[in-house]
């Protein structure tokens, strides 16, 4: 699978119309799976909405986003009078796991792992992050992928997605488990010698009524 994720922030007064246009266009491009939902209060650099579409491969994704059906959405997403900011990533299926089971909360973080990013350090970061769901029971479904196209606040390098039964799973267990604050956090904390990930990141989430992260 190849996924395209868009996190737009809209200008005041344009949000509802833009959301309607994107929803209509997204429904017409033949994505194998599609999520489009407003973000919830509490996101950090998390935009007004999360749009996530999955395709069989990158060529299908590129064709869909060049199609006439998507053109109205592409136009407003490129118009700074309507869309004041847009973070975007494209990524093939990465490390993925967990149960495909029900709705709840979808959360995505975008990282730029760019501080002395040797292959060994990136591998250790990826392995430790992907191991978090084994320790943190509230993570129901997850994927860690590397971006091969990215724009926005950074040239994002990593996409870290999770699904939870509810918001408490993210803000409670995920944040308070030592696998996070005592272990993986070393890659995000400038006071650790392992410091790898730029502090400016995207942390966004929205409600979902069915699983989003496909195999």
């Amino acid at each position: 699978m190849y996924n395209r994720l868009l996190i737009p922030t809209f200008a005041p007064g344009h949000r509802d119309a833009a959301m309607a246009t994107i929803a209509e266009a997204g429904a017409a491009i033949g994505a194998e799976a599609l999520l489009f939902a407003p973000t919830l209060p509490g996101v950090y650099n998390g935009g007004d909405a999360i749009w996530r579409a999955s395709f069989a491969h990158r060529a299908a994704c590129d064709a869909a986003l060049r199609s006439a059906a998507w053109a109205p959405a592409a136009e407003l997403l490129a118009d700074p009078a309507v869309t004041t900011h847009l973070d975007a990533v494209g990524y093939a299926t990465g490390k993925v796991g967990g149960l495909v089971d029900g709705g709840g909360l979808y959360r995505v973080a975008l990282f730029r792992a760019a501080i002395d990013p040797t292959p060994e350090r990136l591998a250790a970061f990826g392995a430790q992050t992907a191991a978090m769901p084994r320790a943190i029971r509230s993570i129901r479904r997850w994927q860690l992928a590397t971006a091969d196209e990215a724009s926005g606040l950074h040239g994002w390098t990593h996409v870290w997605e999770q699904e939870y039964a509810d918001r408490a799973g993210l803000e409670g267990a995920y944040m308070m488990h030592p696998a996070h604050w005592a272990h993986v956090e070393r890659w995000f904390d400038p006071e650790y010698t392992e410091f790898l990930v730029h502090p400016l990141l995207v942390h966004s989430f929205c409600a979902i009524d069915r699983p989003v992260i496909a195999a």
């Binding site: 320790a135 409670g172 267990a173 308070m176 488990h177 030592p178 696998a179 604050w181 005592a182 272990h183 956090e185 070393r186 904390d189 006071e191 650790y192 010698t193």
Partner: peptide, 19 residues
């Protein structure tokens, strides 16, 4: 050289992970 680590008492690990 330097390194930083985060530690907890061995007897507290089970409780810390029960979140």
């Amino acid at each position: 050289s330097r390194r930083r680590g985060t530690y907890a008492p061995a007897e507290a690990l089970e409780a810390l992970a029960d979140v």
